[in-house]
Simulated assay, not measured.
Amino acid sequence: MKLRSLRIPRPLRGNGLDADCEVFDITIESGKVVAVEGAADQRSRGTVISSPVDAHVHIDKSYTVREVGPANGDLFAAISRMDRHSALWTEAHITTRMEKALHDAWHAGTRALRTHLDWKGAEPPLALAAFEQARHRWQGRLELQFVSLTPLDVFADVNAGRCIAQQVQRSGGVLGAFIYRNDDLVHKLGRVLDLAQEHHLSLDFHVDEGLDADATGLRTIAQLVIERGGLPGLRVVCGHACSLSMQAAEEANETLRLCVLAGIHLIALPTTNLYLQGAWSATPLERGITRVREAQAIGLRPVLATDNVQDAFYPYGSYDLMQTFGLGVQMAHLAPAQDWLGAITTHAAAALGLAWDGLIAPDCPADLLVLDAADEFELLDVRGHARTVVRAGRILERR
């Protein structure tokens, strides 16, 4: 197969590509890219990116908004509603929703995703068994990871924390927690880091998901990781960090510098946080997105991800990462947009520790998304989003 006259955005170009070219021909054989050469005709027929990576989703609760209802901007109301309704779920219900989410992501072109599973205490949730079966069914198509999403205060119970960590380790997952202005924050976070080191588990936190400037969970995580020498061999991911947008620039930038030293991966969730954060009694002035541009400028490689789809936390949306990317570009003024495509490809792959970094070059996997967008200014256009999904060197579908 040969893909002709396609733009490869500079952040996605691997070594050895002609620096003077903007438009390339890509030759594919046996599931791999075997050649990337400057096209004789430099008129673009579209844009090619590596298949996107969705680094933060919730497939256990997707598509439940019709039974739960939208929270209309109230994060803790959404949590309460989901807690009540989840008590009625069966594994079959969860499996059906997961399968729909994974099909949607797969056909949109996603190659890997990490889902958070609500995990409220020592016993594993029904969603874990449903996820493990889904991971088996989708092996070889979608690379699936999970995070145990547990309220931080649960880790004050030593036995409960150990049970969670042991089960996460057995199931090949990532240890996580929800952190927001908790009492005794340093001690409880220390317990989570202890468990991560003891069981050799990477970490993924929901942190500071609100607009209170005194929420400093992100800074505390970074400080504790630095004190422990960076947790060698383990990745630390932090999602949301909305409160960072409300803090003074000097304070926020100092937190970001600590994140660089700690090796933290920062994920912004534009759809859910635009919906949940800010006033609902009037037009909201706060956008609810973390300091993405400042993070990039200071040396972090920020990620954009889907988060919630059609549940109480965000009643709209889909598993098309290009839609999420487009909203993030507009919310945070990420321009030129093509320079930020790493946020859903290479940066996200690094956050999840994937084998392929997402750079397009000879010998990389032929898992590609070919967009009709001929240039920067069509990337967010409906027609520009029309795509051909290429998986393992074959066309999966044309949308």
Rank of each mutant, 00 (worst) to 15 (best):
N273T: 03
G288I: 04
D339S: 15
Q330W: 08
I360G: 02
F325L: 08
G326P: 07
P284Y: 10
A332K: 11
E294Q: 14
L359H: 15
M322L: 15
F313S: 03
T255D: 08
G342M: 06
A335F: 15
I264S: 07
L359V: 02
L261G: 10
C259W: 00
W356Q: 13
T346P: 05
D339M: 12
A348Q: 12
I344F: 04
R301E: 13
I344Y: 04
A282M: 13
L261I: 00
N273L: 04
E294I: 03
L258H: 14
R301T: 12
L341Y: 05
A349I: 01
I289D: 04
R287C: 06
Q323V: 09
T345V: 03
A349T: 02
A335G: 07
A349F: 07
F325T: 01
M331D: 11
L321W: 10
P284E: 11
N273E: 02
P302L: 05
N308R: 12
N308A: 11
S281F: 11
W280E: 08
G328H: 10
C259Q: 07
Q296C: 00
T346K: 03
L269N: 15
R301L: 10
H265G: 10
E286I: 00
G288S: 12
G326H: 04
A355H: 13
D307Y: 09
H347F: 11
A252N: 03
A343M: 15
P270S: 00
L269R: 02
L261D: 12
G342A: 14
A268G: 14
T271C: 13
I298F: 11
D339W: 05
S281V: 09
D311T: 06
A252T: 04
L256T: 02
P336D: 01
R291E: 01
L327K: 02
A350D: 15
Y319S: 02
L304V: 01
D320T: 01
L354G: 13
G358T: 00
N273F: 05
W340P: 09
I344P: 09
R257Q: 09
T345F: 09
L276N: 02
N253K: 10
R257C: 02
A332L: 11
T324A: 08
I344W: 08
A252E: 06
A262T: 07
A332G: 12
D357H: 10
F313C: 01
C259F: 01
L300V: 02
A343V: 00
A279V: 07
L274S: 15
R257Y: 00
N308G: 11
N273C: 04
A279W: 04
G299T: 00
A297S: 11
G263H: 08
V303G: 03
I360K: 00
S281H: 14
A343Q: 08
T346F: 00
I298S: 06
A279P: 08
A282I: 05
L269F: 11
P336Q: 00
H333I: 05
L352C: 08
T255E: 07
F325D: 04
A355I: 07
R293N: 10
T290M: 14
R301N: 12
A343N: 06
I264M: 09
G328E: 06
G278R: 08
Q330V: 06
P336F: 01
Q330C: 09
H333P: 01
A295F: 06
I344S: 05
Y314S: 06
G326M: 04
R287M: 06
G263A: 09
L359G: 03
A279Y: 06
T306V: 11
